[in-house]
Design a protein around this nucleic acid. Structure first.
Lengths: 144, 144
DNA sequence: ATAAACTGTAATCATTATTATTACACTTAG
DNA sequence: CTAAGTGTAATAATAATGATTACAGTTTAT
């Protein structure tokens, strides 16, 4: 798995902190320590899902386009990294009953497991993260 | 994430099918399509956890050392891949309150999410997989 | 006792995945 | 019309993964 998901969350949290301001990819890259071009690629897919908005040209940049309490992490995960938890099994061997069917079985198991993973992320919002960062842990709702 | 976990599951399922026989890494590699040296490395850590047994020398090889109904996938995952779901966040930036704390927050969230993932795997045993392979889906217990 | 068939493990090489960078077309504000 | 941005493709650098080679050690059988 690459780090697109955590970078995306970082970006969204950063934009949530800068409510209503327009922020450049250069600016965000100061906080995330990732190259602006890569950020723009990730931000671009968040925009397509209407989580953020962007504006080109001078004084352009990115801004949040949804309520921090409404953005759940499972959504960001699905956008950036869906199915990446399912491992790439080596090519199955048709001459062996195990080799032949195990990949299918494993993929099914992983798919289910990923759903459980996502189900947890569904309970965590960007606002929760903001709260955690400011140590308002009373408002935080992400617990095991 | 590398494919150590799925390879390990494959090996264990294969050994479960060959109950009480001793099988060489060469033999297993026919089924898994992975180099014997790599298999031995993975089998070696399963042995340290007493899931399988190995014997060196002529007529040596690997065999299962636990009941297939008792081996849950979360155990194999913990042995081979624990914490690999937690993404490597880019270096946090001390000059920025978001950059500074977000990695910690994200790591905590991922850790929790991984526990949910593992909790699902805890409900799936190697015997379930064997059953699935033989299509005895009535005995199977892994459902979302 | 020694040859053959194994495991155990380190070290190296090849391949693939990830990330950074360069380049440039396009948009907008002033 | 220029400066400051986004959007995106193409390439280069780096890191992770996997295969292979090499060889020491163990066990069986002759």
């Amino acid at each position: 798995m690459n780090s697109d998901f955590s970078i995306a969350v970082h970006c969204v949290a950063y934009l949530a902190e800068k409510q209503n301001q327009r922020v450049t990819s250069e600016d965000i890259s100061q906080s995330v320590s990732v190259h602006p071009v890569r950020l723009r690629k990730i931000l671009s897919i968040l925009r397509k899902e209407n989580i953020i908005a962007s504006k080109e040209g001078a004084k352009g940049g990115f801004s949040l386009n949804a309520q921090p309490e409404q953005i759940t992490l499972d959504k960001i995960f699905r956008i950036t990294s869906e199915e990446t938890l399912v491992p790439k099994c080596p090519d199955s061997n048709d001459n062996c009953i195990i080799g032949k069917h195990l990949s299918d079985v494993l993929i099914r198991i992983f798919h289910n497991a990923e759903e459980h993973f996502l189900n947890y992320l569904k309970g965590v919002t960007v606002q929760d993260i903001i709260n955690e960062i400011h140590n308002n842990s009373s408002k935080s709702s992400f617990h095991a």
